[in-house]
């Protein structure tokens, strides 16, 4: 099962650190496998909000993909915690679009974007690229 495997040493290859947070290991593996962005490197995966916050404390990621419905601590609370630890973290909420209000709640807590499940690898890549672009220049 999922374990927060955060490494303590920072990345020296200039890549941005990505953390994947989803209670489904299928989704976690899917994101990891389909990640086609050179600038990102997965440094941690977490199966719930609590694990994510612990891993993030050890080594804060630059970019996080975040599920909403998770055991222990849900995505909304987790987003709030991560932003408190590192205000400039970029968070992409990835969730099924059953209730828009819930997604908006996560964004109110500080997430930057939303990707609807199910998603294709292309949609994932585009969303992450847009997330990074949006952070680069405010346009």
């Amino acid at each position: 099962m999922a374990s927060a495997n955060a490494k303590a040493e920072p990345l020296t290859n200039g890549k941005l650190k990505l953390m994947i947070c989803d209670d489904s290991n299928i989704i976690r593996r899917k994101i990891e496998r389909e990640l086609q962005i050179e600038r990102l490197q997965v440094i941690a995966t977490a199966a719930n909000g609590k694990q994510a916050v612990e891993a993030f404390r050890k080594e804060p990621a630059d970019v996080v993909t975040m599920d909403i419905t998770m055991p222990e601590m849900d995505g909304i609370e987790c987003v709030e915690n991560l932003v408190k630890i590192k205000p400039d973290v970029l968070i992409l909420v990835i969730s099924a679009l059953s209730d828009k209000a819930t997604a908006i709640e996560a964004l109110k807590k500080g997430a930057n974007g939303f990707l609807c499940k199910p998603f294709t690898d292309r949609q994932l890549t585009e969303a992450l690229e847009e997330l990074l672009r949006g952070a680069g220049n405010d346009d």
Partner: peptide
Amino acid sequence: GERVNEKLVKTINP
């Protein structure tokens, strides 16, 4: 707000 990426929230436009 400044945080949200406009293009990445179009799908949750209620």
